[in-house]
């Protein structure tokens, strides 16, 4: 390694190991065209999905695009408030900036009729009882707390209906529906 020559006058000083230089930057984001429509209706307790112009696949939440084809999606469809758990994680690690009792269950929720899942919270369910394929329904915030935010649904809870089989749950369900083929 390179030899560093330090003047004798400062040779015996304690080495600086770190300096603190706090950075603060503010961003004002725009949600985008599709998310705006979605958030507006979400504030009315409606869940919208995007319909793919190519094959009619339903994408929730809408991002205005079908990532398979790189095409814009401007058609929306209203979704039911029920679905199932595609897969899940029992988390014992806090999320920075969010108060959640540990452990909590984060799950890929596939709404009935949707072709992709989204990550959300599952509660009213002991972690050891959560299952892939478990049927769930939305638990909304009280009406006076609902607004144009992504966080109107408090969590999803089990409905008690029979589970979907593993091969039809999550992304595997898409293959079953499209091809009758369970080998994702």
């Amino acid at each position: 390694m390179t030899e560093i020559q330090i003047p004798s006058s400062i040779r015996n000083l304690e080495q600086v190991q770190s300096v603190r230089t706090p950075i603060r930057m503010e961003y004002t984001f725009t949600p985008g065209v599709a998310a705006q429509t979605y958030l507006r209706e979400f504030g009315n307790k409606k869940i919208l999905g995007n319909v793919s112009p190519v094959d009619g696949a339903i994408l929730v939440p809408p991002r205005g695009a079908d990532p398979r084809y790189g095409v814009l999606c401007d058609e929306f469809v209203e979704m039911p408030h029920t679905g199932h758990v595609g897969s899940f994680c029992v988390t014992n690690v806090p999320i920075p900036g969010r108060e959640l009792e540990l452990p909590y269950i984060s799950a890929w929720i596939f709404l009935d009729g949707a072709d992709i899942g989204f990550l959300n919270l599952v509660a009213e369910c002991p972690p050891e009882e959560c299952r892939i394929g478990m049927r769930v329904e939305a638990v909304w915030k009280p009406d006076d707390e609902i607004g144009m935010t992504a966080e109107n649904i408090l969590y999803w809870r089990p409905t008690g209906e029979p589970d979907l089989p593993f091969d039809e749950a999550g992304v595997r369900g898409w293959h079953v529906r499209k091809h009758g083929d369970s080998d994702a």
Partner: peptide
Amino acid sequence: KMLDTEVEMMIPLIS
């Protein structure tokens, strides 16, 4: 100032 997301902005250009 564009209201589109990056994805919404880029799709028409790439297409």
